[in-house]
Design a protein around this nucleic acid. Structure first.
Length: 480
RNA sequence: GGCGAGUUGGCGGAGUGGUUACGCAGCGGAUUGCAAAUCCGUGUACAGGAGUUCGAUUCUCCUACUCGCCUCCA
């Protein structure tokens, strides 16, 4: 049996992955809060766990994996947009406008992640559809003295689980209190107690509960949805490492106390953060951008995917222009119909050489290195199958043409036709020059083409003129 | 201050207790009127110090530096 090794945050060690039930391997990933377009950093966990999802299905069978990724659609930023729209005269109730904003954002999210080649999870629960389960869980926690209601809030009492709380992130309750810089709400018994339910302001919608009209805290959402869809205990829980504390820590506390278990998930996987040109992506630094921004700039989703997968998930990854270029170059080679052929892989079974590195804590870059070898050794059939498995394009002539078209003019075919005449002229001049040994006319003609942003290739078959992204028709001198 | 991750050749980026990463760039060659493109070949590395070991880039400890989290940001 093939064994997958994964670095478990819980133990800080690389461990053999042993599923609870090989017939149903269960994985939960914390999904986005749907208040706006996904930024580039949001794409990292999606792609990392997309590969893990593919790998699990490869090892355990397509039908033996359940992958859940939630949508958090309870959020002040969603409400804000809805309120603004209402103030601007939009039709419908505030509730409707809020729902509309969530729907809109979820639609964008799907569009963008689809473009990156991420397979959709089996379930994509929305928090607002699981309020009843959350309330039930909270009631249960109160009954078990792990939580208490105060001033319309319900808080989890960390002291009731003091010996376990903090074990994932390696902190103790006492340490955390010592280092805490947050202002403590007066109704908290312990400064580290966190909110599971809070009252809704009068001007915002909420749900009826035993503690009055209100809404759930962020952490209880994941606990409730994971339990409902994956059971009290499941195999893998993932997310960005910024979620390790407090989000995941709180999930564990809620779930274990409510379910009377000592474990929520057996394996916790956390991806490192994304940086842009060496710095953290932030609006103030001006290096903040969304996946959509890149796609609109003409960066193919496949290229974004390739760059993202090139760095191991537990290392900080830097998005740079140079990487984008290299990725594009590589994918161009792998998809050149003249070299690789023009094939669609029906069989998505990856080669053993590509699976091997993946088994070792998702060494995706190692797998990509194998793809390079396959290309070099002209094992194109393997290349196509294996790349397809990783969600990367290979042997896809359509993609190749798309890349070409992108880096060339807005109307590549038109320019190509036009340039045929120039290529012909160049051939003519060369033919003459071969006789006279005077190449000055050839060189100056070629320089004119280069200045106009035309790439000139000379092969045995003759000269070829190809427009580049700098192609400027007006710089071409008319042919007599 | 607390917790965690990282530090590999010009750049990106894997991996290993003793052996080739891989890609890009560079260099040499083939090809070419000269180039470009392409093909072939090729050099350079494991932050610093101490320890364990027959032997460490790989294990342990210390130091330095970088980054993240501790603020419902993946």
């Amino acid at each position: 049996m093939t064994t997958i090794k994964l670095h478990n945050t819980k133990t800080r060690k690389r461990e053999d992955f042993v599923p609870i039930d090989p017939k149903n391997v269960r994985m939960y990933l914390c999904g986005p809060t749907v208040y706006d377009r996904a930024h580039l950093g949001n794409a990292r966990p999606v792609l990392v766990f997309d590969v893990l999802n593919r790998l699990l299905r490869h090892v355990y069978g397509e039908e033996h994996v359940t992958y859940v990724r939630n949508f958090t659609d309870v959020d002040d930023r969603i409400n804000e947009t809805a309120q603004k729209r209402k103030a601007a005269g939009a039709e419908g109730t505030l509730e409707e406008l809020i729902h509309e904003r969530s729907n809109e954002t979820i639609h964008w999210y799907h569009e963008d992640m689809d473009a990156l080649g991420a397979r959709r999870p089996d379930h994509e629960p929305r928090a607002t559809e699981y309020i009843a389960q959350m309330i039930a869980m909270i009631e249960d926690l109160i009954a078990k003295d792990h939580a208490y209601a105060a001033e319309g809030h319900v808080l989890f009492a960390v002291d009731s689980w003091k010996e376990h709380y903090g074990s994932l992130s390696g902190r103790s309750v006492d340490d955390m209190i010592a280092g805490a810089r947050v202002e403590v709400a007066p109704y908290k018994r312990n400064p580290m107690d966190f909110v599971m339910w809070k009252p809704s302001p009068d001007d915002l919608p909420g749900w009826d509960s035993p503690w009055g009209k209100g809404r759930p805290g962020w952490h209880i959402e994941c606990s409730a949805m994971a339990k409902e869809l994956l059971g009290e205990q499941f195999d893998i829980h993932g997310g960005g490492n910024d979620l390790m504390f407090p989000h995941h820590e709180n999930e564990i506390a809620q779930s274990c106390c409510a379910n009377d278990t000592d474990t929520m998930a057996n394996y916790w996987l956390h991806n490192e953060m994304l940086q842009v040109e060496g710095k953290k992506m932030s609006k103030s630094l001006g290096n903040f951008f969304t996946v959509r921004d890149l796609l609109d700039q003409g960066v193919p989703g496949e290229v974004i995917r390739f760059v993202m997968l090139s760095t191991h998930y537990r290392k900080p990854m830097d998005w740079t222009e140079k990487k984008r270029e290299e990725a594009e170059k590589t994918l161009r080679l792998w998809n050149d119909p003249d070299v690789v052929g023009f094939v669609t892989a029906h069989d998505k079974k990856p080669d053993r050489d590509v699976v091997e590195p993946l088994l070792n804590d998702l060494n995706i870059h190692g797998a990509i290195a194998e793809l390079h070898k396959m290309y070099k050794e002209e094992r194109f059939e393997q290349l196509i199958r294996s790349a397809t498995f990783l969600g990367l394009p290979a042997g896809n002539g359509e993609f190749f043409m798309r890349l070409k078209a992108l880096e060339q003019t807005q109307n590549w075919h038109e320019a190509g036709e036009e340039l045929k005449f120039y290529a012909g002229k160049l051939n003519e001049l060369r033919g003459e020059a071969m006789q006279t040994k005077d190449f000055s006319a050839v060189d100056s003609f070629r320089k004119m083409l280069l200045d106009a942003g035309v790439e000139v290739k000379i092969t045995k078959a003759g000269a070829e003129a190809i427009p580049t992204s700098d192609y400027d028709h007006s710089k071409l001198e008319p042919l007599e």
